[in-house]
């Protein structure tokens, strides 16, 4: 099935001037930039914007270690993180060669010109079905990624860069994802009042989590214990 889609997509892509070869080398460049980072601990703030969650802005610590260890921890308190979304990380996506890259044209993200690349995992059992990357070719930075998964729907990451652009590490990441419905019977929550509906419509099932990084500590060889 996937092969058929691949063939179909490939035929579409043939119209564009960019060849698969060019795309692969672009990805390689991006990856080598990301590979400069072996591990990091980053500090930042996390905002959760989900219709049925009222959460305060919280401090988070983000831990990464190559190739695919990644975790977000709330500094204090309870963390409510979208399943798999936030733990999805660019370096992990690009690590290994277990995907096929397809050039998909050009676009702009936040005024910057970007190249669109679709990544199809070669592993049929992979949770990720398709990832679309929006790559800033000039700076070798991934500005945006759209990922479709089997289990957790589609989500979108938008990244902006600043101080740590040379490592390919964003200052700000916005995850946008779909959420399922939330409802508890009033009998369980023991609520008597009838007109207590949330201000934000629950019908809007798009959720957003935004992490604003304030600092990174890079390549200090962090322990695996942090990911437990």
């Amino acid at each position: 099935m996937k092969k058929i889609i691949f063939v179909f997509l490939s035929s579409l892509i043939c119209h564009f001037s960019t060849s698969a070869q060019d795309v692969n080398s672009l990805i390689k460049k991006v990856r080598s930039k990301l590979d400069k980072v072996n591990d990091y601990i980053a500090e930042g703030k996390m905002k959760t914007d989900v219709a049925f969650i009222k959460a305060p802005v919280g401090k988070v610590k983000v831990f990464y270690k190559r190739p695919d260890k990644f975790t977000v921890k709330r500094d204090k308190g309870i963390s409510i993180l979208p399943k798999s979304g936030v733990s999805f990380n660019m370096s992990s996506v690009l690590s290994g060669d277990n995907y096929t890259a397809i050039p998909s044209g050009e676009s702009t993200v936040g005024g910057d010109k970007v190249k669109l690349v679709k990544l199809l995992p070669n592993d049929d059992n992979s949770d990720v079905v398709l990832t679309t990357l929006y790559i800033d070719e000039a700076n070798l930075l991934i500005k945006k990624a759209n990922t479709t998964t089997r289990e957790n729907g589609t989500f979108e990451m938008e990244m902006s860069y600043g101080k740590y652009a040379s490592y390919g590490l964003p200052d700000r990441v916005i995850f946008a994802f779909n959420t399922k419905e939330y409802k508890l019977p009033k009998g369980v929550t023991l609520e008597f009042d009838t007109d207590d509906t949330p201000k934000h419509s629950v019908k809007n099932k798009k959720g957003r989590v935004e992490i604003i990084y304030s600092s990174y500590v890079i390549n200090k060889n962090i322990s695996d214990m942090e990911f437990k």
Binding site: I53, P185, E191, V202
Partner: peptide, 12 residues
């Protein structure tokens, strides 16, 4: 986490 019928409130 105040789990209300329609939404969740996280109190620090």
């Amino acid at each position: 986490l105040n789990l209300k019928s329609g939404y969740v409130v996280q109190l620090k």
